[in-house]
């Protein structure tokens, strides 16, 4: 009896303590410094949204939207519904206007044809494969 009682002290009490400790939620704490990359990401997202908003404020853009049948306020709400990643994509493509895309993608042929085409395109200044060619203007 007294042995059992002693056992209770030496085994049961530590066991209870251990079980209590283990059942506590571990790894929940998220505390720590807010990292630089998280801050930069937040700042960048804000800047991207500003850029897209400013783009939508431009009169020529508003006119284009009108002809597409989208009112400025509707455009604003559509933009507001986009995620940060999507906004980043739009912001990245804002300043460039797609112009002069080549019809070259349709050319498919044997290597010899490609080589001839490359020589010709080198000469007119589209490519720069052969070092001995100089583009004409």
């Amino acid at each position: 009896m007294s042995i059992l009682r002693r056992l209770r002290h030496f085994i049961v009490v530590p066991l209870i303590a251990a079980m209590t400790f283990l059942s506590m939620p571990l790894g929940v704490a998220q505390a720590g410094l807010i990292g630089s990359e998280a801050i930069v990401a937040a700042e960048t997202n804000a800047a991207n949204r500003q850029a897209v908003d400013a783009f939508l404020q431009r009169q020529d853009v508003r006119d284009q939207l009108q002809t597409l049948g989208v009112s400025p306020s509707e455009a604003d709400s559509r933009v507001a519904a986009l995620s940060d990643a999507e906004i980043a994509k739009i912001a990245g493509s804002l300043p460039t206007d797609p112009a002069g895309e080549g019809a070259l993608g349709v050319i498919v042929g044997a290597v010899i044809i490609i080589a001839i085409v490359l020589l010709i395109t080198d000469i007119v200044g589209l490519t720069s494969v052969y070092p001995f060619t100089r583009p004409i203007r």
Binding site: A99, G100, V124
Partner: peptide, 11 residues
């Protein structure tokens, strides 16, 4: 060539 050049200005 003509097709290619016509479509390929350097904007």
């Amino acid at each position: 060539l003509v097709t290619a050049v016509a479509g390929c200005a350097a904007p």
